[in-house]
Amino acid sequence: MRRLLYSIAWIVVYLILVLAPLLVLLIGQERPGRELWREFSIALGFVGLSMMGLQFLLTSRFRPVVRPFGIDVVYHFHRQISIIAFLFILAHPIMLFAFNPRLLSLLNPFTAPLSAIFGLSALILLALVVFLSLGRLRINLKYEPWRITHGLFATGAVILAMLHVLEVGYYIDTPAKRALWIVLGVFWVGTLFYMRILKPILMVRRPYRVEEVRAERGNTHTVVFQPEGHNGMRFRPGQFAWLTVWASPFSIMEHPFSFSSSSLEKGKVALSIKELGDFTSRVKEITPGTRAYLDGPYGVFSIDYHPAPGYVFLAGGVGITPVMSMLRTLADRNDQRPVYLFYGSKDWEGTTFREDIEALKTRMNLTVFYVLEEPTEGWDGPVGYITPDLLAENLPQNRVELTYFICGPELMMQAVEDALDRLGIPPDQLTAERFNLV
């Protein structure tokens, strides 16, 4: 209930911040109004700019904002709302041109005033930001260069848009309006300062040292971190953190990974990382003693946020990592509630953590179903994918009372969500973790 109230409060704050320019324009209005379409177009430009400015706050992982929603919701919201904000901003010049075609001359960079050049450049940069984010995988743009260009282009776009407003000048002619833009500007720059300067300083003061890099089955490595000169972090099983290694926290070379260790382990934390891309393929090269920085914990994919009489974990591939953390924590807590694990893997050899899972069975009330895509000869377990039939046959009678955690590749998650829906599992008893935040 408290989380819901905080969520609503943040939505109201968001709306107020987005609409602040329009409120000030109405309050401090001294000039006569202009044509309806022109005012509408300008209103869309202003709210679009506010929304873009607020995007920095959404991705700053500012805890009071992240906590009530969960970081996955905040990041997906950031992605979706950016498309809407871009459409508003795009509508701004289109409506002006439609209303007054003579304004099309502003598109000529040789004759256009500075205000139009700033506005157009901001729009082009924003279009690039949106295009590169939505099409990153399709055009094979790697995460690191995308992340750098994303930050630079977005900051550039907002600065250019602010310059556009200042240069047009029509809406900054009273002290109240000037004050508004100064406050908004300070707020946006403040968010950037928090993200790029203050937070890295705090991280530098809380470093970790790599204690061990352990090879696991399925091209996965577990990296164990020991806090250096501090008590480490307390996380909930199933959560994740952003890892920076071989770089300073001031660089933005950080990657999100789930904890795989028990949350009851004192000090030490472990992340398990599967070789999937540039950075993850180099994790095995990390040597013990290397300094690292962790920003976290984040996420609400945790049994601690979803009390239930029993749990069902549905994991595919590396999706087993946060599940391992929850299983290990349940065992360490001597929790004897029934737990079912449906674990889809390519083959038996590459089934990550299978020995650890077998060992956990002796310490807790755990039932495991391995599902192999490519079984070896003699395999008598389920083959292929986690299907509705497999779930229907093996879930207990009280399955609608249990809480379900799903983590794995997108297609597997979709299929499992559909299967659970067909089995009559209420949607609010499903929690899914998607690794593709960006």
Binding site: L19, Q29, E39, F40, L44, D72, V74, H76, I81
Partner: peptide, 30 residues
Amino acid sequence: MRKTLANQLAIAIGIIILILAAIYALIQGT
């Protein structure tokens, strides 16, 4: 599920902002 929630939240907020921007234009415009 949570992705859908984020999408719906973004669309709802987008619509509210669009409506309020239109109301502003109605008040301000001639």
